[in-house]
Design a protein around this nucleic acid. Sequence first.
DNA 1: GTTTATGCAAAACATTTGCAGCCTT
DNA 2: AAGGCTGCAAATGTTTTGCATAAAC
Lengths: 153, 153
Amino acid sequence: MSIYQNIISTIQQSTYKLTPQRETILKILVDNVNEHLSAEELYFILKEVNPDIGLATVYRTLDIFYELKILEKITFGNGIAKYHLRQTFNNSMHHHLICTRCHNIDTISNPIFTKLIKYVNSEYGFEVQDNTIAIHGICEECKNNEDLNNEIR
Amino acid sequence: MSIYQNIISTIQQSTYKLTPQRETILKILVDNVNEHLSAEELYFILKEVNPDIGLATVYRTLDIFYELKILEKITFGNGIAKYHLRQTFNNSMHHHLICTRCHNIDTISNPIFTKLIKYVNSEYGFEVQDNTIAIHGICEECKNNEDLNNEIR
DNA sequence: GTTTATGCAAAACATTTGCAGCCTT
DNA sequence: AAGGCTGCAAATGTTTTGCATAAAC
């Protein structure tokens, strides 16, 4: 069963209805499985497919998908929430490198995270959400630009 | 030299002026070194000390302190930025457990983070900011409440 | 005396909500 | 007919900005 079909059944088994709007939004999320889309970014893509769907519907749908544990939702650094299919559906275990300069998000996988998650769970009783370890800093590109600017000065 | 004095000189050596407002805000930050204050929370404390300082000044001062690398600034989960003295000034190396239910922030220290930071730096050229690894999940308290609710149902 | 900082109010920004009309069964 | 769902516009909450006044060096 495809990711898409898998999620469709999740929605159908919930108390929420599977509307054309929700299907369209889901398609965009599946097509952009490697991106971390904000509501506005998704809305922008959506406009090309179907200009009649409102931004409020996008927000409401993302909320519902989050509630159904289809999506992760994290606000990374600049106050804009970004959404991403959860591990259960996209089958990829990864974490995030978030640049505080350009707000770009890179993904990262490493066995060290598994240890960290176990430690935090046993020591603090803290249940780590999947894919939600965020490391804030400055990405290579921004650091290079910074060095360049310093040279010019 | 105390943390406070240390930061005062940092400001004096910068292009920014040391005004009474900035001094007062700094004092509150130093007094609450273990907290992660939002602008509003700081403003609330500030009102007791000096009701004449405006909220805009709080935001501008926090921005300046962030620029001078006196403060960390991260937006944790719910779109509200929180500020905290940087490691250089508070001398405490720690990271964050952020509850996505109650938005509480717990701090955590462990040698595993040092390894992780080294790895990310060498492998991705990513320069990790101090104290800014954020692990999102559900804290023990919220998990217990959740279990309790399930039992009652 | 010039530059920088402040306070207030208004604007900006992402997000949420109220409500009337719309589907879907 | 009743239910949830949608789109629009208005409201919300946090943060930023314009501007006239005040303070700092």
